[in-house]
Amino acid sequence: MRSDQSKLGFYLLLSPLLLWLVTLIILPHMGLFAVSISEKVGVREYETGFGNYAVFFNEPLYWRTFARTAIMSIMTTVLTLLLGFPIAYYIAKLMRGRAKTTLFLMCLIPFWVSELVRTFGWMILLRETGVLSNFLQFTGVIDGPVEFLYNDAAIMVGLVYTSILFMIVPLVTTLDSLDDSLIEAGYDLGGSGFSILREIVIPHAMPGIVSGCIVVFMLSLGNYLTPILLGGKDSLWFTGLIYTQFITRFNWELGSAFGFLLLALSSTIVFLGLKLSRQSLTNTMGR
């Protein structure tokens, strides 16, 4: 009797998760896959086949955008890590008490407003009549107004800015758990700052680094708003192509195929990243 009850409780608790998994993840993806392998041969006539995937590989614009999105997302991830690590180290190891909490909160504050508003903020800074352009004219560095928006650098700035919090949070958590006496022991045994970073701090922070990188990479790869707004019509971000296929061209079949390719890409790159860093998904995300 009692075990029946506890079983019932277990399934009741499990049901929201199962519902979520089945209705929101598995079913849509099955539907999407079904759509992606149906080719339109006439009005309301479809055949099963991988033609939509063939279109992708035969059209250079499509796979080049795909590769460009992947490479820029990786670059964003690396840049975010390089910027986020010193910030996280400073917060976790060099600050104490209230200063630490304050700094951590200050990293959070920008995320209280929506991503859209934050991106418009960058547009105000970077546009031709914006703050940066005016400032440089005022100081005499440039003669006329310069457009800083609508290029790859602007996209990168936006992507790093949007995702850096998701790098800092796991890094601060793992670095916080690093015992200060390990660093001191490293110095005591004759280590230099660099060798301690390489042999003690980074190995310890590796789960945080990898989980931060996975999150930042996925966020950048799947970002739509920032590349479109800061990159303009030349942004050529793969999510933009998917949007076009679904909404502008009404070509759901090709759009679905693109969606699946993006999923395959992110899974492959995360898998490779885990293999390269010799970490497991449970070790990094499961903490």
């Binding site: 022991a185 042999e199 003690i200």
Partner: peptide, 10 residues
């Protein structure tokens, strides 16, 4: 060190 501070990553 008081808690020995052996490096767990090695």
């Amino acid at each position: 060190f008081q808690h020995l501070a052996l490096f767990p990553m090695m």
